[in-house]
Design a protein around this nucleic acid. Structure first.
Lengths: 344, 344
DNA sequence: ACGCGCGATGTTGACGTCAACATCGACGGC
DNA sequence: GCCGTCGATGTTGACGTCAACATCGCGCGT
């Protein structure tokens, strides 16, 4: 339990009443000063502010939230901050929320098990939040069943349209098409794919769009390799791709796996982009300094974050709901890891 | 303002009173059930729980916090989540806090200006937190002056002993010595250094320790190159290091800059580790897949996070204060970017 | 048969804030 | 000089929860 003072009472900060007493005014006047209302005499205001400073007064946000029925805080459920995309999106969400005057309540899912997700959701039920943004990959969500308190506004950052909640995400379809067509445009007969985990909707979208693009152009669709977003999984898949001489172009579902692939290609003495061209996805800051610098699809995480906060706040205030999924455009960043098909 | 019901009242969730009415008991009994007190008859408990489920009751944490004088929440001040270390530490803090039953309130500093820091601090003053962990680099903190509400428990994750707050951090000194001695042990005449921004205490510690280690071994201390933690800055410094034939060993203050350095070395045709050995700091997941895989100093972010949460909670509960700074040991991870000095 | 103890449940009030309403005094118009 | 107006300030109560205290009834010991 918290520290207590000599009388055995909980140590709490000074309240409005304390400030009021010191300044010789009523609590209500203190409230008015604290909230910047204009109908307070300048002299009185100064006196109150001096008293606040002297006592180190800070408003009690619990009381305020109780009174106003609003926490001005939004919960963000995340599963590990290892993934580059999640981290950047969280950053953007935090920034957007702060600008809109909302605090961020970070609710981590401790491990991949279903019970961890369920427990994160139930923790959230007791949290002081007005709404929730879900940043974990969808399949986990599905399995846990939607155990979120009814009536809590929710926005999902993901690529499935299967939820009862508003959705904001990068336009995976368009991004993957950009990558694939870039490689085809360089004269490669076809494009191989190193995908994300099959359980991720984002990975699924990228894979489908890659496939559709190939078919649109009348190309063969090579078998897919699946990774788990980590560089290590990219390296492992890469060891198989590297020994296959037919492989001249690979679209990798994220930059980290692309890094692993590059390493595998180097180890097998295959030149990039001379023998094999590689395109990533995300455009993490490091990608520009991979060896060789990675051509990749840049996601606009700032917009994703901002738009999900906007959507959530709209839902909180107006009870609005169920708009079209919001898709944020991605763009191709051309660097040195892609070049013309060999012998062309 | 939040959505209102048809009567124009704020839409709020059901309260204990609503549950009590439905279950035909007093509010206090509902409270006892909600808090898992044992002195409630099993039959009554079931009835209350059924009512809770039916109404979708969730306890109002604002009221609870007001009543108990404790938010069970800790604030974490961060500046951007771009840096790998900050992100990992935040992750560890979130995990540790959750396990200890504390929520995380993320308070982003929006940009590098002093006013942004000040404003983050003052936002924090109004936030529903019992304590604060500061995860931004120290110099920014200094300039802003310690404007934190007096009496708010604080823990700083940084490497300066100049604060009035408890400190937890990786043992920068030991980590940098490990890196430097590893390179000297491989027969390099001396070790060059690509440091972090001079304003960072962590960077400062690493630099000093590198220098001290060289002096201990009677080696020459080459001029320092300063980066800003980004791969880009590492690349730029790297272009200067790469053209200097004397450089055979470089200790880089983080992995991201090391990546940029590797790229610069490749571009100048200098072999790693044949011509130049490189050691990084952090051990981000990707480091194992750099080309070549990077020898680096692994920071134990999990421990840093856990220990800072522990220290903060201790401070919150007992008002304990001012222990020795906590230094978490780092360790060397040997990969392929380091080898014997050329011609040896 | 009486009372004591104890477990189950109910009642009251306080946590800090702020909207709504009440009050008070000064000033201007007639 | 009287009243109406308006701006500054004060008073009251309610938000939802829970500790402290009060009550009630049942079983058991003597």
């Amino acid at each position: 339990m918290p520290a207590e003072d000599s009388a055995g009472r909980r140590r709490r900060g000074p309240s409005m009443a304390d400030v009021a007493r010191l300044a010789g005014v009523s609590g209500q006047t203190v409230s008015r000063v604290a909230n910047d209302r204009n109908n307070v005499d300048a002299v009185t205001r100064d006196r109150v502010q001096a008293a606040m400073r002297q006592l180190g007064y800070r408003p009690n946000s619990a009381a305020r939230a109780l009174r106003n029925g609003e926490y001005r805080s939004i919960g963000v459920i995340v599963f590990e901050l290892h993934s580059f995309g999640t981290t950047r999106t969280l950053d953007a969400i935090a920034t957007a929320a702060t600008i809109s005057g909302y605090a961020i309540n970070l609710v981590p899912v401790l491990d991949v098990t279903q019970s961890a997700v369920t427990s994160a959701f139930s923790r959230l039920g007791e949290q002081a939040v007005d709404g929730v943004i879900i940043l974990i990959e969808a399949h986990t969500l599905d399995e846990a069943g939607v155990r979120l308190p009814h009536g809590l506004p929710v926005v999902v950052v993901d690529s499935s349209a299967h939820y009862d909640y508003p959705i904001v995400d990068t336009d995976q379809r368009q991004g993957a098409r950009l990558a694939t067509e870039h490689l085809l445009g360089l004269g490669h007969a076809t494009v191989w794919h190193l995908g994300g985990p099959p359980t991720s909707f984002a990975a699924d979208r990228r894979r489908r769009s890659w496939e559709a693009t190939l078919l649109d152009h009348g190309r063969e669709v090579p078998p897919v390799f699946d990774g788990d977003w980590t560089a290590t999984s990219g390296y492992e898949a890469g060891r198989q791709l590297a020994v296959n001489a037919e492989v001249t172009a690979v679209f990798v579902a994220n930059d980290q796996m692309a890094l692993g692939l590059l390493r595998a290609l180097h180890e097998h003495g295959r030149d990039v982009p001379g023998d094999v061209s590689v395109v990533g996805f995300d455009d993490m800051e490091e990608a520009a300094h991979f060896w060789p610098p990675l051509t990749t699809i840049r996601q606009n995480f700032v917009d994703v974050g901002r738009l999900s906060v906007d959507a959530l706040i709209r839902e909180i205030h107006a009870g609005e709901h169920h708009h079209e999924p919001v898709a944020v455009a991605a763009k191709l960043v051309h660097r040195s890891s892609t070049g013309p098909a060999p012998g062309r």
